[in-house]
């Protein structure tokens, strides 16, 4: 339990540095702290499937982001001033207040940490091997019980790659 809190504090610090840093390269590396911290949390919570995906995705997205930085600029040039800055801070504060109020209401109905509701997951755990024949329960759930979700996820990735190829194409662009 204590290691989870330490990792969470580290991740929050990394996220704050990534937001506030003016050097984009150090911002991306601080963003990596969040991703790799999440990997460690998945390992601590005994989810190796997610940890494998998370560590590889994090490494690859860091490489892609650093490639984008090397191609463009290293300086964060956004300027916030005057009314825009006040509006941004007030909006953030209002969101935080509303979020905390709704969380206070919602927390009463959540099960305690480490004792999840097993209304759906219980039958999956019991009948997963028998119904699908897959020894890896995660594969049984994402490809059999929850196939729709996985198809949607694959479609999201497909659309993202299509978007990148379409935006960064050479042929048929005006300038």
């Amino acid at each position: 339990m204590i290691e989870l809190y330490l990792l969470l504090i580290l991740m929050i610090l990394g996220a704050i540095i990534a937001l506030e840093s003016r050097n984009l390269l150090s911002a991306i590396i601080s963003l990596g702290i969040v991703g790799f911290g999440l990997t460690l949390i998945f390992l601590v919570l005994q989810a190796p499937d997610l940890a494998i995906v998370q560590i590889v995705v994090e490494t690859l997205s860091l490489i892609i982001l650093i490639a984008a930085i090397l191609k463009t600029t290293r300086e964060d040039t956004t300027e916030e001033w005057g009314a825009k800055k006040i509006f941004l801070y007030l909006g953030g504060l209002a969101f935080l207040v509303i979020f905390l109020i709704s969380v206070k209401g919602a927390l009463k109905f959540l099960p305690p940490f480490g004792e999840p509701l097993m209304r759906m997951a219980g039958p999956y755990l019991k009948l997963g091997l028998e119904k699908t024949g897959a020894a890896n329960l995660v594969a049984a759930v994402i490809l059999d019980f929850r196939g729709y979700d996985t198809l949607g996820e694959a479609a999201v990735l497909f659309t993202a790659a299509m978007g990148v190829i379409a935006v960064l194409r050479k042929i048929g662009r005006k300038n």
Binding site: P48, D49, I52, V53, V56, V57, T59, L60, A134, A135, N136, V138, A139, A140, I142, L143, E153
Partner: peptide
């Protein structure tokens, strides 16, 4: 071995891309 051991299409695909 996605249906036997941790991993599967998503993780393996990303490793192949790597």
């Amino acid at each position: 071995h996605g249906h036997l051991t941790p991993g599967g299409g998503f993780a393996g695909g990303i490793i192949i891309a790597g």
